[in-house]
């Protein structure tokens, strides 16, 4: 039997807005196996980010069940959720979200700090990860001294700090030029080859074609897309 990392059934997400209820996700079923590289595509406003936030435990579904690595999310307390976000999930945002007052290396060290890693290990591991994303010579730069592509590399290094089994990326190349975007995707492929499960949102078909499986969200419903290089 395949090792199922993410198992979602009938996930619904509604928002209250101006007195009316908007149903953004209308009953999503999603299974992701360990080791997969999945791309989620769909037009803007279709609910991709909303779904991703629920997968990444940054938000909770209005209804439906979400079983992550065999555990029902509903049964978990605040501290257990924090632990999963820290240990099992690496999140890469479209807007990078680096803390401006910290250097690249210090930004990468944040999740390691929440993992209670000794400082020596934090320094070693952050250097190793920044080297891996090609940022070895700019570890002590502040975010505003780095281009968008380099900032996204730092964000990826940060997402990998605690060795998560699941890497989530919400339009990671959305704000980058094509060439830089390509490098980032190449990085993802490498990580996937090393065993990291990746779920990536994009609305760029070319970017999506790098994934092993593509799902399409349309108007809050999910459907199987074209399967690339299966």
């Amino acid at each position: 039997m395949a090792d199922i990392l993410i198992d979602m059934k009938n996930i619904v997400r509604e928002f209250e807005s101006g007195g009316e209820t908007l149903r953004i996700l209308k009953g999503i079923d999603l299974k992701v196996e360990r080791g997969e590289f999945l791309a989620i595509v769909g037009p803007s406003g279709s609910g991709k980010s909303t779904l991703m936030n629920i997968i990444g435990l940054l938000d909770v579904a209005t209804s439906g069940t979400y079983i992550m690595d065999g555990q029902n999310i509903k049964d978990l307390g605040e501290d257990q959720l924090a632990y999963l976000r820290n240990q099992e999930i690496g999140f890469v945002f479209q807007q990078y979200f680096l803390l401006p007052r910290l250097t690249a290396r210090e930004n990468v060290m944040i999740p390691m700090f929440y993992a209670d890693m000794p400082e020596k290990d934090q320094l070693e591991k952050s250097a190793e990860l920044l080297e891996k994303v090609g940022m070895k010579d700019r570890m002590d730069f502040y975010p505003n001294q780095l281009s968008g592509g380099l900032q996204q590399r730092v964000a990826i290094a940060r997402a990998l700090g605690t060795g998560p089994s699941l890497l989530l990326a919400d339009e990671p190349t959305g704000a980058l030029d094509q060439k830089t975007g390509k490098q980032i995707i190449e990085l993802f492929r490498q990580l996937n080859n090393d065993g990291t499960t990746i779920v990536m949102i994009t609305h760029d078909a070319k970017v999506a074609s790098n994934a092993k499986r593509i799902l399409k969200i349309l108007d809050g419903n999910i459907g199987e897309g074209d399967t690339a290089d299966a």
Binding site: R85, F91, L99, I110, P111, Y114, R158
Partner: peptide
């Protein structure tokens, strides 16, 4: 608040 959200997303507990 953004910083607080980010720190939570990276695995900080509310207490910390």
């Amino acid at each position: 608040t953004t910083e607080i959200g980010l720190r939570k997303a990276l695995g900080s507990s509310g207490k910390r």
